[in-house]
């Protein structure tokens, strides 16, 4: 059996006084797409931030690619091959589109600027515009390809479908599928069950900062009612 790429054990996280994640255990195998499903406020985004080292007040262990990264600052975690696309996308408006694309340090195995522009010609056409002038879908594309420049092994993707038209969501799904086909592992946060079940090999279900269920791709159809119930308000 191969070792997990990401192994999170007994993860607890805190915002000030409030305890928001309660002893999470989760794993992502190399090349696997795993989704975190749950309602708003269930702790999915917090989980990604805790793994990436963006949220600092947490306990437990986060092992990534064989090394404990819990104490590392997020730029060092990034250097080890983890990438985070935040929910609000994090496009920098004081940078041009081109500067956004080329901001992360290029690493071996990462996407060259040339590959980015060939895959998304719109990013070349709009290269000189401020990053914030792109449409929502274009910003999401930019946010995803930007982190590929460093050649990550694991992509933490926070609600990529949020607020986007179905046709754009479809394209983003294609993109994630393609990346996963190239061997990139993805930890996906979603509330859109249709989108998540198309992409993910496995789903963890979040309720109130705890993982309460785990559903494999093959069981999604049979357990559809349970999943819908978990997600409905």
């Amino acid at each position: 059996m191969t070792a997990a790429l990401l192994d999170v054990r007994d993860l607890n996280a805190y915002y000030g006084q409030s305890h928001v994640l309660h002893g999470l255990n989760l794993r992502v195998m190399p090349g696997e797409v795993v989704s975190l499903l749950g309602r708003n406020g269930a702790g999915k985004t917090t989980t990604l931030k805790s793994i990436m080292g963006v949220l600092r007040s947490r306990t437990g262990s986060v092992t990534f690619d064989g090394a404990d990264v819990l104490r590392l600052p997020s730029h060092r975690i990034a250097a080890r091959g983890m990438a985070w696309v935040p929910e609000e996308r994090g496009i920098l408006s004081s940078l041009s589109v081109r500067e956004n694309v080329e901001l992360p340090p290029a690493r071996p195995g990462g996407w060259s600027a040339e590959r980015v522009y060939e895959t998304f010609p719109v990013l070349r056409e709009r290269g000189q515009h401020p990053g914030s002038k792109l449409s929502g879908g274009e910003q999401q594309m930019l946010a995803i390809v930007r982190v590929l420049r460093s050649g990550p092994k694991l992509l933490l993707l926070d609600e990529p479908s949020e607020g986007l038209a179905p046709v754009i969501v479809q394209r983003i799904g294609d993109m994630v599928e393609r990346l996963s086909g190239e061997g990139l592992a993805v930890l996906l946060v979603e509330q859109n069950l249709k989108f998540a079940s198309r992409l993910a090999d496995r789903h963890y279900v979040f309720v109130d900062g705890r993982i309460v269920d785990e559903v494999k791709r093959d069981d999604v159809q049979a357990r559809r009612d349970d999943l819908v119930r978990y997600l409905s308000v």
Partner: peptide
């Protein structure tokens, strides 16, 4: 503009 995101992109 955004130190958190910039750091997460691998910049110290």
């Amino acid at each position: 503009e955004n130190p958190v995101v910039t750091r997460s992109l691998g910049i110290d």
